[in-house]
């Protein structure tokens, strides 16, 4: 695995890294997932909800692929199929050409090491009774990645990679002593400590404030370069997808309505739903050029 030099600003590289000729890492082929709701209290029979309806897409190695959709569009379900938290009812999920539903037992455990997931809600995805060290160390223990005396070192380096510095301060804290942003960093450290090849990030910032989201995005972009990993980035935010993703697919009610390079889709949407989505974005133009024309900490102003 050759490491790319991290970009000084930790960003920008969004289109340059895309290689159209690199092999396909993950592929969904006509994947369908149906959820059956239980019978209701009033005895109405169980309903079926088609979360994914014959969805196909493929992610190339080293790419950030964005899955953009609203709540209930099936975007999270697609991510869960890839990490095998759910099984498709029909269709296939291929990772490096291997059908996931055929992997079992020990092979499954080895496979888990290669594909990791970052969950949406850092308030829910960390065990409240485990310290930061125990949380991040767990994958290392499970996969026997480091000798017991090297574990601390591994955890410390994973924590500093996600910007929890100095890591020693965080090792023995519990989730309830951390802010949302810090928790999400711990969750990211837990999934990246295994050096996975594929990372599914399920709305990793939807529970966080804007300024913290930017911190997390920057960490993800840097990690992606360091690990040379493939990313599936699941989001409801077109803007975030534009900034982070090489290609995106817009998904609605379990079906992909539009797929292609992020910029092309957002600048020239073809599908009416994508157009509607773009039209609904809050109109708010940043006026960067005028920003900070007044700087109270430098030049004068009358104090009142």
């Amino acid at each position: 695995m050759d490491l790319l030099e991290p970009h000084p600003q930790g960003a920008v590289l969004r289109t340059s890294i895309m290689k159209t000729d690199s092999p396909i890492a993950v592929e969904l082929v006509e994947a369908t997932k149906i959820f059956r709701t239980k019978k209701t209290f009033f005895g109405r029979s169980g309903e079926q909800v088609t979360a994914l309806d014959r969805v196909s897409f493929s992610i190339r190695q080293g790419e950030i692929f964005g899955l953009v959709g609203e709540s209930g569009s099936g975007k999270t379900t697609a991510g869960r199929l890839i990490v095998k938290l759910d099984e498709p009812d029909s269709g296939k999920v291929l990772v490096d050409g291997v059908n996931l539903s055929e992997i079992r037992g020990h092979k499954m455990k080895r496979f888990r090491r290669r594909i990791q997931m970052i969950f949406q809600d850092p308030y829910q995805s960390l065990n409240p009774y485990l310290s930061v060290y125990q949380t991040v160390c767990e994958p290392v223990v499970i996969h026997r990645l480091a000798a017991p005396q090297k574990r601390l070192e591994t955890v410390v380096s994973a924590l500093s990679q996600v910007g929890l510095t100095p890591p020693e301060d965080y090792l023995f804290r519990y989730p309830h002593q951390l802010s949302g942003g810090q928790r999400q960093r711990v969750a990211i450290a837990r999934s990246t400590v295994l050096n996975p090849e594929i990372i599914v990030a399920d709305e990793p910032t939807s529970m966080l404030d804007a300024s913290i989201s930017i911190q997390i995005f920057n960490i993800l972009v840097r990690l992606k370069q360091n690990l040379n990993a493939t990313f599936l980035f699941i989001t409801h935010s077109l803007a975030a997808a534009l900034y982070l993703c090489d290609r995106i697919a817009v998904i609605r009610k379990g079906k992909i309505v539009e797929m292609g390079p992020a910029k092309a889709i957002i600048r020239k949407p073809e599908h009416p739903y994508t157009r509607e989505l773009i039209r609904s974005q809050p109109r708010f133009r940043k006026k960067t050029e005028q920003r900070g024309s007044f700087r109270p900490w430098e030049n004068g102003a009358t104090s009142s």
Partner: peptide, 18 residues
């Protein structure tokens, strides 16, 4: 304002994090 991502930026580079 910097941290707010919009789809209207011409050259979409992630802003520096606060």
């Amino acid at each position: 304002l910097d941290a707010y991502l919009t789809i209207e930026e011409e050259d979409a580079a992630l802003p520096q994090a606060m």
